[in-house]
Design a protein around this nucleic acid. Structure first.
Length: 255
DNA sequence: ATGGCTTCATAGTGAAGA
């Protein structure tokens, strides 16, 4: 089972790229973030025609998540239960007995902002929920844009980013709390090239200079981590004309 | 250099992203 996370930064703008990419890569499951599209405008017809079932939760302008799957999507959940949030950032569904959780974790803007406090509270609510979810679904994959670079090796210039949002100690501690649930970072289960990132700023030729961060992740519960055969980041998708600023992140699991 | 670039909502600019 090939599962992928991709922050597309507007599904309206990126739909042709997503369709081209699906036709080539043929993942079993694709989790999208930042669709920035109300549900009434979701391109269901096009994606169904491409062979994918969909669940989606969107809003105008910001946020928005969707799960695309070749196989039947069951037991969909919208948002974090018992956590009031106007922002559409979470979707879960079961595919072939695997619980797929798609998250667009808040950016946080800067460590001294209200949005940063919202991010930390949000992460706490996510962790509390997943602890319960894992009891129901031992085979669980948490995919998405985490907006957290877990370690210095996930940053092109750690000194410049030290203590900044996406890299701060409380955010990294929150990431460790997710790992403490028994989840594994699929990317780090394997030997990886140095300086591999999943996001590059649109400005300052950041992609050409490989000035990036690894902030998109696929965490796997123990039974899935054991069954994981590969994980990589598809940098090619960032090279096309008018790309998303994020690249797709892959994990391949024997299920 | 507190900018750089892209998107959205909107009709000239501002917010937000990361």
């Amino acid at each position: 089972m090939k599962i992928v996370s991709w922050n597309v930064n507007s599904l309206k703008v990126r739909l042709p790229q997503v369709l081209d990419w699906l036709a080539i890569e043929q993942p079993d499951v694709l989790c999208l973030q930042e669709t920035k599209q109300e549900d009434v405008n979701f391109p269901l017809t096009e994606l169904n025609a491409a062979g994918y079932q969909c669940v989606f939760s969107g809003q105008k302008t910001y946020n928005g998540v969707a799960i695309l799957s070749k196989q039947t999507l069951q037991q969909p959940t919208y948002g974090i239960p018992n956590f009031a949030d106007e922002q559409k950032r979470v979707l879960a569904a079961t595919v072939q007995g695997v619980r797929i959780v798609d998250v667009y974790i808040p950016n946080g803007q800067s460590v001294d902002s209200d949005k940063y406090q919202y991010k930390l509270a949000w992460l706490k609510a996510l962790t509390t929920w997943l602890k319960e979810e894992l009891k129901t679904y031992p085979k669980l994959a948490l995919l998405g844009d985490y907006n957290i670079a877990p370690e210095d090796r996930d940053i092109h210039e750690p000194a410049a980013w030290e203590g900044q949002v996406l890299c701060s100690a409380p955010e990294r501690a929150a990431f460790q709390e997710l790992l403490a649930l028994g989840l594994k970072d699929s990317f780090r289960l394997f030997e990886q090239p140095e300086k591999t990132y999943s996001w590059w700023d649109y400005r300052m030729n950041a992609f050409r200079r490989n000035r990036g961060l690894r902030i998109d992740h696929i965490l796997l519960s123990a039974p899935l981590a054991t069954a994981c055969k590969a994980s990589q980041i598809d940098k090619e998708a960032r090279k096309v004309e008018r790309p998303s600023d994020h690249a797709p992140v892959f994990a391949e699991i024997d299920v």
